[in-house]
Amino acid sequence: MKKTILLLLLVVAASASLVSAQSRRNLRINEIMVLNDSNYVDDYGRHSAWIELFNTTHAPLNIASVFITNNRDVLNPDLEAGDRKALMYAVPLDDILTKIPKRQHVVFWADGRPTLGTFHTSFTLRPGEENWIGVYDSDGRTLIDSVTIPASLEANHSYARKIDGIDTDENGKKLGAAAWEIRDDSKEFPITPSSCNKIRETNDKIDMFAREDENGFAMAIMAMGIVFTALLLLCVCFYIISKIGERVSTHNRAVSQGTSRAEMPTEKRKEHDSGEAIAAIAMALHEHLDAHDRENTVLTINKVKRAYSPWSSKIYSLRSLPHK
């Protein structure tokens, strides 16, 4: 019993850590500004480079103990774990702000002053040069996401994903650099620290239905088609299952009678017994056998056992009489 409980606990713990690790792998670098002269300001009123991360999942995601770095040396697979971690900024534990709500963003200031708070990294970015940024899982070895920012990125321009968290096309093909664009804070290419890169004012799907399917015919036909398909599938499936069941029971009957299925009589009863026929037979038997008369004189005594429980015992709920 103890072994079973231990095994169960181990399985639960393992699956919990797996779920946590898997969800952290859905973290994405979403937007970066390398040279910030007059853009977003941190809590201390200073302009610094920033890196925006995005939780692509539909569940809160705690990024404590995730590593962020701009040092390409960590790409060396032969590097020891300790040396590797020393090259990266570890997101501190025990800060509730590291829990990113579903489909939300968090901004890290790449100002090289981690003492200013959780969201200030230990490294800075280099303007005018190609910058590489990587996000590693808590083991310091599993690369979650990385991006190379072109050296041509101007001051107060950001390098952002076109659509939040998306790095593949409709067919699942990796887009690479094509998923990114340079933003100059114009109306067409807004810079959006800590908010969505693609601002959705309305639901595209609903807009499309409202525009292209004014009468709702397409929706009705399509949806009814799906409903019919689902139930038709179920119908066909159960037709097949009932046929298989019939064959299996015939086979079992044949085996029990020591014959083969082919030799079993194939003649089927033309109709099932109707309820009326069964009721008539039962009544006739009752009349004929007079089956229930003896029971009238039989007295049955059932032993009723009530399990004792101190929780329901009255003596525990009554106050004792005061001593005189």
């Binding site: 009705a220 949806a223 009814m224 019919f228 139930l231 038709l232 159960f238 009932s242």
Partner: peptide
Amino acid sequence: LIANPKLMLIGAAAQFGIFGAYMVALL
């Protein structure tokens, strides 16, 4: 339902009430 699976299709057909009402609601 298991004994007579084709009756499932009646359950599907009745859902037209949903999509008929959807069309009128759009109107």
